[in-house]
Computed example of a mutant assay.
Amino acid sequence: MATNRLACHDCHRIVDPDEEVCPYCGSNSLTEDWAGYVVITHPEESEVAEKMEVTEAGEYALKVR
């Protein structure tokens, strides 16, 4: 995981630093100011995914500032 990756304020997805718009939700609210990293592989079976309201597998930031 590169330290300069961005997180989306809206969906918490982790995206590459060259992205200007989140490819997952279309938001342009991306930030380097995030903490915690989780990979959700089976959201339908994950308590973390349920708490985060995540329905798709992927890489997510736990906290986005």
Rank of each mutant, 00 (worst) to 15 (best):
H42D: 14
A57K: 12
E19Q: 15
P43M: 13
V38K: 01
C22H: 09
V38E: 07
E50F: 04
H12D: 00
L6Q: 08
H9R: 10
W34Q: 06
Y24W: 08
M52C: 13
N4P: 00
A49R: 07
V54Y: 09
P43Y: 10
Y37E: 03
L30N: 01
D10R: 13
C25A: 10
E47F: 06
I40G: 01
S46A: 10
L30W: 08
C11S: 01
V54Q: 06
A2Y: 08
E50D: 13
R13N: 00
G58T: 02
G36Y: 12
W34Y: 13
Y24E: 07
E19P: 06
C11G: 04
E44M: 12
P17D: 08
C22Q: 11
D10M: 05
V15N: 01
W34G: 00
T3Y: 13
C25Q: 12
A2R: 14
M52H: 12
S46E: 09
P17I: 04
D18W: 06
C22V: 05
T55A: 13
V15M: 03
K51P: 05
S29Q: 15
V21N: 09
P17V: 02
T31S: 12
D10K: 14
Y60I: 03
L6Y: 03
G36M: 09
A57Q: 04
T31E: 11
V21S: 13
G26N: 11
R13P: 03
H12R: 15
T31H: 07
D16H: 01
S29N: 13
A49Q: 00
E59L: 14
Y24D: 04
P23E: 02
I40Y: 10
E19F: 05
N4R: 07
Y60H: 08
